[in-house]
Simulated scan of single mutants.
Amino acid sequence: MAEMAIWLLAVYVCSSLLVMLLDRWAKQMRSGVEYPYVHYRLLVRDSEQVLESTVRLLLFRSYWSGKPVRITLHDEGSIDDTPQIAALYKRYPYCWLDDGQDSTSRSTIIIDLRKKEAGA
């Protein structure tokens, strides 16, 4: 009889804890507060060779640091497949194509992937 009472008490405590955690999670989801993220702005021009590996590296770093990431791609007139690769990344929630406005803030990290021209 005592064993049954202990089991019932344990089940009650576990279910109360689960309800409390689910309530806290639901409140957090309803709050709509946007968590701070690390914003990277990639300047690209003829950068098809390094664009994908750079984005993957930033996502890997975001995964291990636990901080969300936002990546903005700013293409400066590429003539290779860089615009097509950038268009593929547009469908992901962490990646935006630059709309031409200079929206860099102090916390934006700018990474220059532009291929240097032969004469420069």
Rank of each mutant, 00 (worst) to 15 (best):
L88Q: 08
Y35C: 02
P83Y: 07
E117M: 13
E76H: 12
T108Q: 09
I6Y: 06
E3A: 11
I110C: 13
I109G: 07
A10S: 15
V55I: 15
Y40K: 00
D98C: 15
E3W: 05
G32V: 00
R61H: 08
L22N: 09
Y92H: 09
L42E: 00
I71A: 03
A5Y: 05
C14F: 10
M29T: 04
L59M: 13
L59P: 00
L88F: 14
M29V: 03
S103N: 15
D81T: 15
K27Q: 08
M29E: 02
R24W: 06
P36K: 02
R91Q: 13
I6D: 07
S78P: 03
Y12N: 07
S15T: 12
R70Q: 13
S62V: 06
D99R: 15
A2P: 00
Y12R: 14
V44H: 03
V69Y: 13
R24M: 06
E3V: 06
A5P: 02
P93L: 00
W64Y: 07
M29C: 06
I111C: 10
S31T: 01
W64A: 09
R91D: 11
K116A: 12
T108L: 06
Y63I: 03
A118P: 00
Q28I: 04
E48S: 08
P83M: 00
L97W: 08
L73F: 06
Y40S: 01
R114K: 14
H74M: 10
Y89N: 01
A5K: 13
I85A: 00
P83H: 04
T108A: 07
M20D: 07
D112I: 08
I85G: 00
Y40H: 03
L113Y: 13
L22Q: 11
G100F: 09
Q49N: 02
C95T: 10
F60S: 15
R106F: 15
Y92F: 06
V44G: 04
P36A: 03
D75F: 13
S105G: 15
C14L: 13
S78T: 06
R70E: 10
S62L: 07
V69A: 09
K116E: 15
A120R: 12
A10L: 12
R41I: 01
Q49G: 02
A87T: 14
T82Y: 09
L43K: 08
K116P: 12
V33I: 05
D46N: 10
R56L: 14
R61E: 03
Y92M: 08
R114G: 05
V33H: 04
L43T: 01
Y92N: 11
W96E: 08
I71S: 03
L42N: 00
I6N: 07
Q84S: 10
D99N: 15
K90G: 01
L59W: 07
I6R: 04
S103Q: 14
H39C: 02
C14S: 14
P93G: 01
K67D: 05
Y40G: 01
P68Y: 01
P36G: 00
S65G: 05
S107L: 15
F60W: 06
G119E: 12
D81Q: 14
L73I: 15
C95L: 13
M20Q: 11
I109E: 11
Y40W: 02
K27A: 06
R114A: 04
S78D: 12
S47P: 02
P36M: 05
S47W: 03
D23E: 10
P93W: 05
E34G: 07
M20V: 00
W7Q: 15
M29Q: 10
G77F: 09
M1R: 08
D81R: 14
L59K: 09
R61G: 04
R45L: 05
L8M: 13
